[in-house]
Amino acid sequence: MNNLLIVLSLWWLLLAPPQALAEPAPLSIPGEITVPFRGVDHSALRGFAQDRITHITFHHEGFAGTDSDLFRRASAARDRQTIDQRVRNIHAYHAGDAGLGMFAYHYAVDKAGNIAKGRPVSLKPSTRSTAIGSRNLADFAGHFAVVALGDFNHESLTPAGRLAYVRVMSEAQRAYRVPTAQIQPHKHHAATSCPGTHILKEAGALREMVRHYSLQAELVGRGCLKDTPDGKWGPKSRRALRAFSKANRGVVAQPEVSDVALFGMLDAPGAACR
């Protein structure tokens, strides 16, 4: 009888329809621009489904290499385009010649601070970079990717572009509970110079700005901080975190800038300043 039950159970499992792959919750950022993508190569996207986000990677467009004259000429033409035009142009290359299926990143930001939505977060990013120490393409399963439009071997982030970059990463950090240590430049995971020398110089500072912005956004949403989040931790932010901790004993045991404080707040969505 027991053997019969085992056989029937195995038979049922073989006939049962396969469960659909779970997907990360879609992300939506207030003010984002939705770009219509045409000519998506769905066959190239097979095998790129991902069921969760564990890392955040930041990239740059990087169109000029080490050629400063090419950068001047190409950036002048790009600066005349809107962010949706630039993303569509990159998408055409990624879907066509690069064989990446569609625009490779989940979000893009420009130097004016505009934010454009890219590929769905249910698809992992796809780049042509190889794994460190290997000829195989790097695998970005579990990654959320944002690209800064421009070539940051030749230019630096503008204040507006930096804030948009940080804001997108903060939204992803809070939506998917990504530890700050797992917010890294593309170069950290692949044999590449991306996101360019100038962004790499401030990679650590950017990571801390994301955590600061995340904490500030939570404090603003809970009525503890009156300022607009900017990723710069100062006296007002410190006082707001202390006030939150005092009003919600046990949620944030130590009112210090840390992932423990951030995730404690995220685990208590109803906690607020009174």
Rank of each mutant, 00 (worst) to 15 (best):
residue 120 P to K: 12
residue 113 G to A: 13
residue 90 I to H: 05
residue 93 Y to E: 09
residue 130 T to K: 15
residue 127 T to E: 15
residue 112 A to K: 15
residue 85 Q to N: 03
residue 99 G to L: 06
residue 125 P to N: 08
residue 106 H to K: 08
residue 128 R to F: 07
residue 127 T to W: 11
residue 105 Y to A: 12
residue 103 F to S: 02
residue 107 Y to E: 07
residue 111 K to D: 05
residue 122 S to G: 14
residue 103 F to C: 03
residue 97 D to H: 01
residue 85 Q to H: 03
residue 89 N to W: 07
residue 109 V to D: 02
residue 129 S to G: 09
residue 88 R to L: 13
residue 87 V to Q: 07
residue 123 L to M: 07
residue 94 H to R: 08
residue 103 F to T: 00
residue 102 M to N: 01
residue 92 A to L: 05
residue 115 I to R: 04
residue 102 M to K: 04
residue 109 V to I: 14
residue 114 N to H: 15
residue 84 D to F: 02
residue 128 R to Y: 07
residue 126 S to Q: 15
residue 111 K to Q: 13
residue 85 Q to F: 03
residue 86 R to M: 14
residue 85 Q to I: 02
residue 117 K to N: 03
residue 129 S to E: 14
residue 129 S to K: 11
residue 119 R to L: 15
residue 88 R to D: 02
residue 89 N to I: 04
residue 95 A to T: 00
residue 122 S to V: 11
residue 93 Y to H: 06
residue 91 H to P: 13
residue 90 I to M: 11
residue 124 K to C: 03
residue 102 M to L: 13
residue 126 S to D: 06
residue 107 Y to M: 10
residue 104 A to T: 12
residue 107 Y to S: 08
residue 96 G to Q: 04
residue 115 I to W: 04
residue 105 Y to K: 09
residue 88 R to A: 10
residue 91 H to V: 04
residue 89 N to M: 10
residue 114 N to G: 07
residue 91 H to C: 13
residue 97 D to T: 08
residue 124 K to Q: 14
residue 94 H to K: 09
residue 121 V to H: 01
residue 120 P to C: 12
